Simulated assay, not measured.
Amino acid sequence: MNIFRLAADISHAVAIVLLLYKIWTSRSCAGLSLKSQSLYVAVFVSRYLDIFRFVSFYNTFMKLFFIIGSSATVYLMAFKFKHTYQKENDSFPVLYLILPCIAMAFVLPYEYNPVEILWTFSIWQESVAIFPQLFMVQKTGEAESITSHYLFALGSYRGLYILNWIYRYVVEDHVDWISIVAGVIQTVLYCDFFYLYITRVIKGRKLDLPA
């Protein structure tokens, strides 16, 4: 554990809390992609198959939090507040994301066993899971402030993990190329959003995309 990984985990947890807060207080999931949230459930379930192998309280708690938090988000969107879900705007074809990730999991795992293949799938899938949400924002041309804060916290989590990998390489001589490449891909997806967030949302303006 290092400060960059801790900050990344906190940023990730804040993103999930912000999303649940937004849905529960507004009683609406308008503007949110159920496809993205469902992909995140698949990411965490496939990654944390070792959840019952105790490493530390922190490790177990965070794994449970990510699985339960993402599952609760999907439940609220798909069932409790489904009448507010804008299905017509959540139209990105997710098979274009899932199938390449499955292929990469079988082609480039560190070891050929079910747990390692599922872990590899989860890394690649997480790198593109946000794409339906970003596509939805692009399609509608705007995002509520709290949705923007959620996306910024989620993007910051990946950016901080890049610093974590740099730190581990320098201090521990540890390199995880799958996580690094997938993390860079995910961070690049956020670049335009980061610019708009800094130039608009932080200044108190609504995140409206340029025409």
Rank of each mutant, 00 (worst) to 15 (best):
L20K: 07
D173M: 13
W177N: 12
F66Y: 13
S91H: 09
F131L: 02
L160T: 05
S145I: 09
F79P: 00
F4L: 00
P93Y: 11
K139L: 05
V184A: 10
T199S: 12
F4G: 04
L18E: 14
Y195H: 12
S70N: 10
V175R: 12
L196Y: 15
S70W: 05
H83R: 14
I178N: 15
S36K: 03
S70T: 10
G159W: 06
V107N: 08
F44K: 03
K82H: 13
P93K: 04
S122Y: 07
T199M: 02
A42W: 08
P114L: 02
P114D: 14
V43K: 01
V43R: 01
V171F: 14
I162A: 12
L209K: 07
H174S: 15
E116W: 09
A182P: 01
R5P: 00
L196T: 07
Q125F: 13
F81S: 04
F131Y: 14
T60Y: 06
W165F: 07
D90C: 05
L118K: 03
P114S: 08
V94L: 03
C29A: 12
S179M: 10
I67E: 06
P100A: 07
S91T: 07
E126N: 13
G31P: 00
S122R: 04
I180S: 11
T140R: 15
S145Y: 08
A103G: 11
P210D: 12
D208I: 11
Y85C: 02
V94C: 05
E88F: 07
